[in-house]
């Protein structure tokens, strides 16, 4: 199983200048289910495939509200994800208390990045095996999408897909890049769902209990209910 002798802890570089532990953590993100996000200045959509541990268990939550304007979807180790969601919510509450306003998505992404990066520099512990896609809006900068990975890198994206089999979703999004600029909310939802559908290789089609959709418009974040998702999926 070992790739080589340089992957035992976070403090050892490989001679090629790589930190293998971090790269393994990034592999963990690919084990998670697909998350798709796309948007423009006016609106952004977050869509995710849900999985269940076994036939008997409930569906795993994928999308979490951070505050009234920001939501985040996680892919990878869900418990690491839960830790980061907690951190983001705390940070958001702090900002709201001190400045009287919801934290803007960029600041929250930066907060997550700082936390992820710290775990990269310590021999104790391990990097978080989770990728986040953070979607939100602020009055000043409009709607934004951010993507983090276990190395602590943060990128602002116009559209993105992470998690298992996300490549096909990304390919779809790349083909439809131009449509994003001018898309309305409804069109944007459709683009996100079609991209998500590309990554759905299960025998059955997408259903409302297999996927979650959240939308962000100027200063509002809403998670679509199962009934709404069903209606959306009929138009796919």
């Amino acid at each position: 199983m070992f790739r080589n002798q340089y992957d035992q802890d976070m403090l050892t570089w490989s001679p090629q200048g790589r930190l293998h532990q971090v790269e393994y953590a990034m592999e963990a993100v690919k084990q998670g289910s697909t998350v798709v996000a796309c948007g423009n200045k006016k609106c952004a959509v977050l869509a995710a495939l849900k999985r269940k541990q076994s036939k008997l268990s409930s569906m795993q939550e994928k999308i979490f509200a951070i505050n009234t304007r920001v939501g985040v979807a996680v892919s990878g180790l869900s418990t690491d994800g839960a830790k980061l969601v907690k951190l983001l919510r705390e940070e958001s509450t702090r900002e709201e208390f001190v400045y009287g306003r919801s934290a803007c998505p960029g600041r929250l992404a930066a907060a997550a990045s700082k936390s992820l990066q710290i775990s990269m520099r310590k021999s104790s512990g391990r990097p978080c095996g989770v990728g986040l896609v953070l979607v939100g809006s602020s009055e000043q900068l409009g709607c934004q999408i951010f993507q983090t990975c276990p190395s602590g890198e943060v990128h602002q994206m116009s559209c993105t897909a992470i998690g298992g089999r996300s490549q096909s979703a990304r390919t779809y999004l790349e083909k439809n890049m131009e449509a994003l600029e001018t898309a309305s909310v409804d069109e944007m939802i459709m683009i996100a769902l079609r991209a998500l559908n590309e990554s759905n290789v299960d025998a059955s089609d997408l259903t409302s209990d297999k996927c979650e959709v959240a939308i962000v418009e100027l200063n509002t974040y809403t998670l679509k209910s199962a009934a709404e998702v069903t209606t959306l999926l009929t138009n796919l």
Partner: peptide, 13 residues
């Protein structure tokens, strides 16, 4: 990230 605090936020702070 292009964010600056507006008067309302300074006031709250």
């Amino acid at each position: 990230d292009g964010m600056t605090r507006d008067a309302e936020e300074i006031y709250q702070y």
